[in-house]
Design a protein around this nucleic acid. Sequence first.
DNA 1: TTGAAAGCGATACCAG
DNA 2: CTGGTATCGCTTTCAA
Lengths: 349, 349
Amino acid sequence: MTATLADVAARAQVSPATVSRVLNGNYPVAAATRERVLRAVDELDYVLNGPASSLAAATSDLVGILVNDIADPFFGIMAGAAQAAIGEERGAREKLSVICNTGGSPERELTYLTLLQRQRAAAVIVTGGALEDSAHQAAVGAKLARLADAGTRIVLCGRPPVPGDSVTATLAFDNRGGGRRLTEHLIGLGHRRIGYVAGPTERTTTRHRLEGHRAALEAAGLARTLDARVVHGSYDRRSGYDAALELLRQEPELTALVAANDTVALGACAALRDRGLSVPGDVSVAGFVDLPFSADAVPALTTVRLPLYEAGARAGRLALGLEPAPPGGIATVHGELMVRASTAPPRTL
Amino acid sequence: MTATLADVAARAQVSPATVSRVLNGNYPVAAATRERVLRAVDELDYVLNGPASSLAAATSDLVGILVNDIADPFFGIMAGAAQAAIGEERGAREKLSVICNTGGSPERELTYLTLLQRQRAAAVIVTGGALEDSAHQAAVGAKLARLADAGTRIVLCGRPPVPGDSVTATLAFDNRGGGRRLTEHLIGLGHRRIGYVAGPTERTTTRHRLEGHRAALEAAGLARTLDARVVHGSYDRRSGYDAALELLRQEPELTALVAANDTVALGACAALRDRGLSVPGDVSVAGFVDLPFSADAVPALTTVRLPLYEAGARAGRLALGLEPAPPGGIATVHGELMVRASTAPPRTL
DNA sequence: TTGAAAGCGATACCAG
DNA sequence: CTGGTATCGCTTTCAA
């Protein structure tokens, strides 16, 4: 039914070995021969058998990109950028880079890693915050180690470094620094009662951003009880809405809010508006991570913009080994503070 | 280095054939033997070699999901839903479903299809509008046909049906109907000068939505020149912004606007605001396709909400053959008109 | 219920 | 520069 390499060889009157060499282009072949082979390939419209090739070569051209939530553009941008960067690499063996959506579930994360291990993936890029659960982290660490010594390159993007030498490169986002700068910005304007809408409790991203927030408060002598004015929720709009209401209930005199990401910030803004408070007139809102639509959606938002596209593209290149790993294997990616509003001092209540 | 099936067999003191049967679970094996094998698998932490398995079985467990722009939640939702549905299918041979981002490029679309063909993918789901270019459509059609007769199941989701019997199932979005209903809604309120911010010219989605719009205008006796009050652009915010300004320039007396999708609608709203026009006070805006954030971002927006998650999940099940194909292989997915604002008659200029 | 052995289709080493 | 061929790890008849 489907043409095989042998068929092509027969048609071009050469040996299978030669056809393979022409196709892989990594070996000298006479121009005339190559021509004949390529013509035969075309005439039979032969397509390489990936599994057979991978089996023989003991490596595949699959690159897996794991994301927590593909419906969130935060991940869409990173993953898309990585895939684009990998797709650039034309020539020789074209890589098939694919996105795997774990939905934030630890089991699915492991399942996908196993599935990729099965395919003998050439590389794996893991994006986004990790679950703060030592058992799961150990399991993932072990999986990555196995993948690594089966020859798979591992790149972490927007995820904290893991101990061990299995990871090829890590692009860590400066979540602490970002959280700190957002809060410092608000403090600098004179805000003293600042609420914090945090992400899900058991995620590294959540904790790091929150730590930055606390550090800024402490530096300004504003820290109170550890969990005062902090409400956790998931990274969705509804959660931001509810959290803002809860914060307002706890402390009606709030003059500013920091949100763990834009989606949550949008929800918080909606809640404030529904309470008759204007943003940023009455309450300033600052958010983490700038997505393309945020600017229009809430012109009043001040954010820390992480270079998601650039980071994703770089992760893609690192996965392919097109770019040298940073010294120590770890690079920290910093976000840029984007002040769009909230430059006025807080209202006096 | 890595354990093979033979190693497991040796350790469990059975033949490779038996191990294979245990692993695939599709053949009777004595309980005691099975136990021993599974223990050996565990002890060696053996992971099946995908390529070898695919080669021998002549089928793989890869399912590809093609999307036009993964940074757009429209696709993220559909793809995520499909992947979730496929992930559900636990047991026997776990499928590895992966998302491929074409970025709207016809070449990359074909490249991905070839790559999936190489892997002997079990199924392919193609989402989103197609390019209106007969050469490219023919090429894609041919590719799909080849895939199909190599045993790959093909499912189209949110893409118009293609002729031929290579496609297993098609979930076509009712873009014409949606465009028509949005426009009818505005006409019903009394609007007479309605602008249309269209998507990229050469896409089926764009054309179909626009046809619905025109049909509504004609039915109301409002149609003028074919291209009057229509501006094309890409599906991004910037494009919506520019298009709105252009429409306003062409006709300052516009009282309503229909946008090809929410992202574009957001841009259009921003443009209107920057021109000192309130939405929906001065100009009503209606948009296509409801994304989660739109509601907050622009409470003034009236949209047609497509059941993206449901459609994606169904596509996933169809790809796996877990759900019977609709009669004729084609099902039309209708959107729901969500009226959130714009219920007031137009301003009098 | 289990084992033996013949492929699956490409790669890469060894000759020539 | 090109050809022959052992090999990769698993699946699947065919027998026992």
